[in-house]
């Protein structure tokens, strides 16, 4: 099976400070990958390089096409960590913001079909009720949900999300992760998610990628949780993550699949 994203020897540096070094991996269709790592480890930069927002060295292919030639942007939904729009005085409605997610597909004209898609995306993210309100008048959490609707509106095959749940309250977060879980399981949407919230999102994620300037670990959740070598290699942060995965809400997110828990019990 060919990868949806294929990265080979990706390097990136701000002036002379290396941020990413020799990163290679392949994301398969249907993967739900949690990208973790310490602050400043290069997680956000990696996503930006993958999307062409920062120019790195090495090779990146999206859906089998080298990044510089890639045109099918409607296949990708992206939600940034810090959106430049939240402080803006831009007088634009939430619905118009969501509509921007369809730009890569059909050019400038707005069709009835597009409006239907916008309606559906806003329905999915519970933002329909404030579709006509000015985006800037919404709370940060509401804005984040509108931006998620914008990422979903083109029915992407790949969702790239950079700490998307930071501004959400508990109920919105649960709704949000359930939605992502359903998109991944039922519609086969591939998801790449930077998160520090490994406990809550852990039950959905199928693979972990640990970035700390280099690709320290990339593999399945059981491999990540139970590899002592990984724990030794990654030190305190990884141990904390593993503990969090096991202890969050008092149960192991792997459930019956977790051999370690089975032994404990």
């Amino acid at each position: 099976m060919s990868g949806i994203i294929k990265a080979q020897n990706v390097n990136f540096a701000y002036t002379r400070t290396p941020v990413l070094e020799n990163i290679s991996f392949e994301i398969q269709p249907g993967d739900y990958v949690g990208i973790i790592g310490p602050n400043g480890g290069g997680k956000t930069t990696l996503l930006k390089v993958m999307l062409g927002l920062e120019k790195g060295k090495g090779s990146i292919e999206l859906f089998g096409t080298p990044l510089p030639q890639f045109q099918e942007w409607h296949k990708i939904g992206y939600l940034a960590q810090k959106s430049p729009v939240s402080q803006s005085r831009f007088p634009i409605s939430a619905q118009e913001v969501v509509l921007m997610g369809l730009l890569g597909r059909r050019g400038s004209r707005i069709s009835v079909g597009e409006l239907k898609q916008v309606y559906e995306a806003m329905q999915q993210t519970n933002t329909r009720e404030y579709a006509d309100r000015i985006f800037n008048d919404l709370s940060i959490g509401q804005q984040q949900r509108v931006l998620l609707a914008r990422a979903l509106v083109s029915h992407p095959q790949l969702l790239i999300l950079d700490e998307p749940s930071t501004a959400l309250d508990a109920s919105s977060r649960e709704l949000f992760f359930n939605l992502l879980g359903n998109l991944n399981k039922k519609q086969g949407v591939t998801i790449l998610l930077i998160t520090h919230d490994t406990g809550e999102v852990g039950k959905y994620i199928s693979k972990f990628m640990y970035i700390d300037k280099t690709l320290v670990f990339f593999g399945t959740k059981p491999e990540f949780c139970h590899s002592k070598a990984v724990a030794e290699k990654l030190g305190a942060f990884a141990q904390h993550t593993i503990d969090h995965l096991h202890n969050h809400h008092g149960h192991c997110p792997l459930g019956a699949d977790c051999e370690e828990c089975a032994h404990d019990h």
Binding site: L51, G52, L53, H74, V85, M100, L103, R150
Partner: peptide, 12 residues
């Protein structure tokens, strides 16, 4: 103008 990075990911 609204969101430059996102616009880039739409191929603009």
């Amino acid at each position: 103008c609204f969101d430059e990075p996102f616009a880039k990911t739409r191929g603009i």
